[in-house]
Simulated assay, not measured.
Amino acid sequence: MSEQVIGPKSEVVFHFSIKLEDGSAADSTKVHNKPAKLFMGDGSLTDNFEKCLLGLKTGQSKSFDLRPEDAFGQPNPDNIYYLDRSKFGADTPAKVGSIIAFTQPDGTELPGLVREVAGDSVTVDFNHPLAGQPVTFEVDILEVKN
């Protein structure tokens, strides 16, 4: 049986960890021992994360250091909104540090982080929590199907 190499259309089962500069884990599939499953090109990972996987084989482990632009991007000031405090209620209080899911016009939910509460104005950041941060992306390839 030939070794399966990850290509642009592969189905990949893998464990991953995303670590911050200080070495702390931001995310890891190993915590609950539930590997991730990915169809390359399906949009669930950014192009840069997918490029890290191309060419790896079943059984391989690798670590990649990614700049913010190659990982979760830089924070976009257009993703910071100032909302009226009246939009928040008892079930979703406007508290700094709270992550609240906001329903978009198309029905999808988008998580926002409450950054500041000043008077009747609530600042909500819809950038990815890891935006602007360099990360280390560690992968263990468990299975590749082409």
Rank of each mutant, 00 (worst) to 15 (best):
S2V: 11
S2T: 14
E3S: 15
Q4G: 14
I6Q: 09
I6V: 15
G7S: 12
G7K: 15
K9I: 12
S10E: 02
E11W: 10
E11R: 11
V12L: 05
V13E: 09
S17W: 01
I18V: 14
L20V: 07
D22F: 01
G23C: 02
S24N: 08
A26L: 03
D27V: 10
D27R: 08
D27Y: 11
S28L: 00
S28A: 01
T29M: 09
K30C: 10
K30H: 11
V31Q: 12
V31S: 12
N33V: 12
N33R: 15
P35M: 08
A36E: 13
K37N: 13
F39C: 09
M40W: 04
M40H: 05
D42E: 05
G43D: 00
G43K: 04
L45N: 06
L45V: 07
T46D: 06
T46M: 06
T46R: 06
T46F: 10
D47W: 06
N48K: 15
N48Y: 07
N48Q: 14
F49H: 11
K51V: 10
C52Q: 06
C52T: 09
L54S: 05
G55Y: 01
L56N: 05
K57H: 07
Q60E: 15
S61T: 14
S63C: 10
F64A: 03
P68D: 01
E69Y: 00
E69N: 08
D70Q: 12
G73C: 04
Q74G: 01
P75S: 03
P75A: 03
P75L: 01
P75K: 13
D78K: 07
N79R: 14
I80K: 11
Y81W: 11
L83H: 06
L83M: 12
R85A: 05
K87R: 14
F88Y: 06
G89N: 15
D91R: 07
T92M: 08
T92I: 08
P93A: 02
K95P: 03
V96Y: 03
V96A: 06
G97M: 05
I99A: 09
I100T: 13
Q104W: 08
P105L: 12
D106G: 14
G107E: 05
G107L: 09
G107P: 03
G107N: 09
E109G: 14
L110F: 03
L110C: 11
P111M: 05
P111G: 06
G112N: 04
G112L: 04
G112A: 04
L113P: 15
V114W: 00
R115G: 04
R115M: 08
A118P: 02
G119K: 04
G119W: 00
D120H: 13
V122L: 04
V122I: 06
T123G: 09
T123N: 07
V124K: 07
V124S: 04
P129N: 01
P129K: 01
L130S: 00
A131I: 07
G132Q: 04
P134F: 00
V135E: 00
T136W: 00
T136C: 05
F137G: 02
F137W: 05
E138W: 00
V139D: 08
V139P: 06
D140R: 13
D140M: 13
D140F: 14
L142T: 11
E143Y: 11
E143P: 00
E143H: 14
E143K: 15
N146K: 13
N146Y: 10
